[in-house]
Amino acid sequence: MDWGGIFENTLRAAIAKDAIVFALAAIGLNVHFGYTGLLNFGQAGFVALGAYGTAITVDYYGQSLWLGVLATIASAVVFALLLGVPTLRLRTDYLAIVTIAASEGLRLLLRSVTLGDFTGGSTGLSGFAGDFYSINPLPGGRYGFGPFRYSSDTWWMLTVGWTLVLLATLLVWALMRSPWGRVLKSIREDENAARSLGKNVYYYKMQSLVLGGVIGALGGFVNAVATRSVQPDNYGTAITFFAYTALILGGTARIWGPVVGAMLFWVVISFTEGVLREAIGNEVIPSSFMSTTQVGQVRFMLVGLGLALLMIFRPQGIFGDRRELALDAR
């Protein structure tokens, strides 16, 4: 077993592209679920729109990357309004149902031949990330320290990605310490109480859905420029629940919860997969019991199990506050 290799990969996973993408998706979910109590089961849809908004604008319409980023934000806003208008006056189940259905419907549309001219069908699009890397101000070549040795372009992507994470976190922090954030939290606790105190609950929920959706869409943007491609099947509903798991792992309604959670999430995933792959490669685990393709499936099972167990036993996250746990037990 190559433990050194496994540990290096695990360390890299903590700051890699996926940690950024899921940190942004989870920050968005934190606004929805952690602060407002909205059950958005369609964050994958926002992430997908974020990726495709940029890709289609640049690749199909031949516009600049900046217009692509604008399209990414605009499409997330429209998607949030589309999902929010019919559901946010109703019980929270309806939002969950409509969002999960819409994100899956969106994926089907994106991969369909019908829209293939715009989206590239099931193949997706590539060749739109050139502008992003052409403005890379970092010196060329390959450099770094320890296990973190990347090409100049990767460093550029990581810099932009983590800057976005930092900015989103800062924005959420500024909002949540304000009276606006207080209204959001009161809606999470009891929306009728908020209503009885003169707060327009529907309006706040809509703002929350839009804000969290846009942040999630930025995650999609990062994923698109980092992989230099978009493919519909990378944006299945599982993304949403990976992000939920990351969020709950780090702690809901905590400023750094989603960021720490996303890093931790990929550390755990990378470590277990590294160990499993090594074990299969060295025939510690017989290949009749598990093949290397099945390792990828184990990831999803682990996430499902982890999500359920966290929600049952540690809904306040692994760094959660005892006092909050006591409140939950009431």
């Binding site: 939920y244 999803f300 099972m301 996430v303 499902g304 999500l307 359920a308 929600m311 049952i312």
Partner: peptide, 12 residues
């Protein structure tokens, strides 16, 4: 949320 987790686990 738990039902989602259970669903994901079973599906895979």
């Amino acid at each position: 949320v738990i039902s989602i987790g259970v669903g994901l686990l079973l599906r895979y």
